[in-house]
Simulated scan of single mutants.
Amino acid sequence: MKIKVSRYTTEPQATEAVFEYEVQMQDVTLLEVLNEIKTKQDASLTYTSGCRSSVCGSCSMRVNGREVLACAYKIQDGDLVEPMKNSPVIRDLVVNMDKAYSFNAKAKAWQSSLSPSTNLTQENEKINEIQSDCILCGLCYSACPVYAVNEEFIGPFSLTRVWRYVSDVREKDSSDKIDAIQTNGIWDCTLCNECTLVCPQDISSKSDIEKLRSKSVMSGYSDPSFANAFGGSFQGTSFDGSPSF
Rank of each mutant, 00 (worst) to 15 (best):
M1L: 06
S6I: 02
S6Q: 10
R7T: 07
Y8Q: 15
Y8W: 15
T10S: 15
E11K: 14
Q13V: 15
F19Q: 13
E20K: 09
E20S: 13
E22K: 15
V23A: 13
Q24I: 00
Q24M: 01
M25L: 15
D27P: 05
V28F: 11
T29Q: 05
T29R: 12
L30A: 15
V33H: 11
N35S: 14
N35H: 15
I37L: 08
K40N: 15
T48V: 05
S49W: 10
R52E: 14
S54T: 09
V55K: 06
R62Q: 13
R62S: 07
V63L: 01
V63S: 01
V63G: 01
V63Q: 01
G65D: 14
L69Q: 06
L69H: 05
L69C: 05
C71W: 00
G78D: 01
G78A: 01
M84I: 01
K85E: 11
V89H: 09
I90H: 00
R91C: 13
L93Y: 06
V94R: 03
V95E: 06
V95I: 13
M97I: 03
K99I: 06
A100T: 00
Y101M: 08
N104E: 01
K108P: 07
K108C: 12
A109G: 12
A109T: 09
W110S: 07
S112A: 15
L114H: 14
S115R: 09
S117P: 02
T121R: 06
I127H: 05
N128K: 05
L136P: 00
G138S: 10
L139F: 02
S142M: 00
P145Y: 03
Y147M: 11
A148T: 13
V149T: 14
V149W: 12
N150D: 13
N150W: 03
I154E: 05
F157C: 00
S158M: 07
T160A: 10
R161Y: 02
R161I: 03
V162I: 02
W163Y: 10
W163N: 10
Y165I: 01
V166G: 11
S167P: 04
S167K: 11
D168W: 03
V169M: 04
V169Y: 03
R170W: 02
E171T: 06
E171K: 04
K172H: 06
D173W: 11
D173E: 12
K177H: 02
I178W: 00
A180N: 03
Q182R: 00
T183R: 10
G185D: 01
G185M: 01
L191Q: 14
T196S: 02
V198N: 06
V198R: 04
P200Q: 12
Q201E: 13
S205W: 00
S205T: 05
S207T: 11
E210D: 11
L212D: 08
R213Y: 07
S214C: 02
M218C: 03
A227Q: 11
A227W: 05
A227R: 14
F230N: 10
G232Q: 08
G232S: 10
S233I: 13
S233V: 14
Q235S: 08
G236A: 12
G236T: 11
G236Q: 07
S238P: 02
S242E: 09
S242W: 07
S244W: 02
S244N: 09
S244H: 05
